[in-house]
Design a protein around this nucleic acid. Structure first.
Lengths: 229, 229
DNA sequence: CCAAAAGTGTTTCTATTACACCCATGT
DNA sequence: ACATGGGTGTAATAGAAACACTTTTGG
């Protein structure tokens, strides 16, 4: 199919690796699997796979994410292309890393059953194969940058969430403590949150009001960007 | 060489395309070439080439930049991986785009002679092959984001430059006019500029002082990032 | 002496930070 | 009644933005 001129050039294996972030209410976590094929079989690894000739790289990333989580319509973004010659010990593989933000609660059970998947807090990631640790570091950095200007943090929370949960999330992402009053004022001033009548009563006696977000305004801000923190 | 397990997977052509930015004192420009092979031979295009099996993607980008410009040690950064199945009309090619910032003055002549290269102002980019226009747009966006927090704008200027030139550069990048006084105050407050005794006398009767930058402080800021504009 | 671009401070406004007490409720 | 986490406002500070006149010098 490729025309004559291109025939002289090398073809390479192209992989996709996914950094899947989740938030458990306190800690920011990444989903890892035990690799089920050689080399490095049994070692902790990001979920990954190869790009097929007939699918785009984005499609490939979506397919791989679905294989592990069963999820579609997930927030996902391309991170970086890792292209060192020796990055994969078994041969030349160029890997395009993606990161995904998912709501950890709804999917924990099914995730753990497939691929021996497990959530790890970002501070205690085990030894990973190849350059996967580096990929996670880069993803963390990009998440921080992105979250500062785009309200994508919500992707990590359940549909309804409390302000303390949201605060915890941002603190986990920045690994720093934020002023409760300043934070809530700023978030509420964006006008993308709707307060619900209901309260979350598990973590405190008083209970914290649930909020949800206004999809329309949210989409607008997500695209345009705002000064978030 | 690749082990058994990887054999089943498709291998793809992997290309690199370079968005090369330059600044002529007034306008921000991109360097384009007339493509010298089929398909789309003779059409305007970014400088590109294929990644060889034995070189990393970064090395490949550096090699391709050198082929066109003769330059090494150029500021270069990976932009994005473009992976649609139909992006190249002649076959499946995944392309990793890079952008480079070069000092337009020193290299204009040699550039124009090779590959029929030509500088185009960003507002008047001709029709380009494949998704190259999209690549340029993304590079412009990334340049804006990066420049807001990292003093990489200097990469586009000659070793010594005037404050009005620097102002013009930022105005060109942002496509907006900036306040001269606020701008110079802020830039000088970073403490990375050294004022030279000499003046540039071509563009005004009064003449504008040349500045150069303190490499040490510059490097530090370039890495850490600052709030630049 | 005039035209053209360089250089230079102050004030206003806006955004960010710092900070501490009362509230609601389950036990 | 008390322990626990939730909710709320104000004052001080710092950073950003707006703004116009004087300087230099080649022609």
């Amino acid at each position: 199919m490729d025309i004559v001129k291109y025939r002289n050039h090398d073809k390479l294996l192209v992989a996709v690796d996914c950094i899947i972030f989740g938030f458990d209410g306190t800690k920011l976590k990444a989903l890892l699997i035990r690799r089920d094929f050689e080399p490095e079989k049994g070692k902790w690894s990001l979920m990954g796979g190869f790009v097929n000739k007939k699918e785009s790289v984005d499609e490939s990333a979506a397919r791989i994410l679905k294989e592990l989580t069963g999820l579609t319509n997930v927030y996902m973004e391309q991170l970086y292309c890792f292209g060192d010659t020796k990055r994969d010990s078994a041969g030349r593989v160029v890997s395009i890393a993606y990161f995904a933000l998912i709501n950890i609660e709804d999917y924990t059970s099914q995730l753990v059953n497939t691929h021996e998947a497990q959530w790890f807090p970002l501070e205690s990631i085990p030894k990973l194969i190849f350059d996967h640790k580096q990929m996670i570091n880069k993803a963390k950095e990009m998440l921080r940058n992105k979250v500062a200007n785009h309200p994508i943090g919500f992707e990590l929370l359940p549909r309804k969430f409390t302000l303390p949960q949201l605060l915890n999330l941002y603190q986990a992402i920045y690994n720093a403590s934020l002023d409760k009053r300043n934070f809530t004022r700023k978030i509420l001033s964006l006008g993308i949150l709707k307060k619900l009548g209901e309260k979350e009563k598990e973590t405190s006696r008083k209970g914290a009001f649930y909020y949800t977000f206004d999809r329309v305004k949210y989409k607008k801000l997500a695209h345009e960007g705002v000064n978030f923190i």
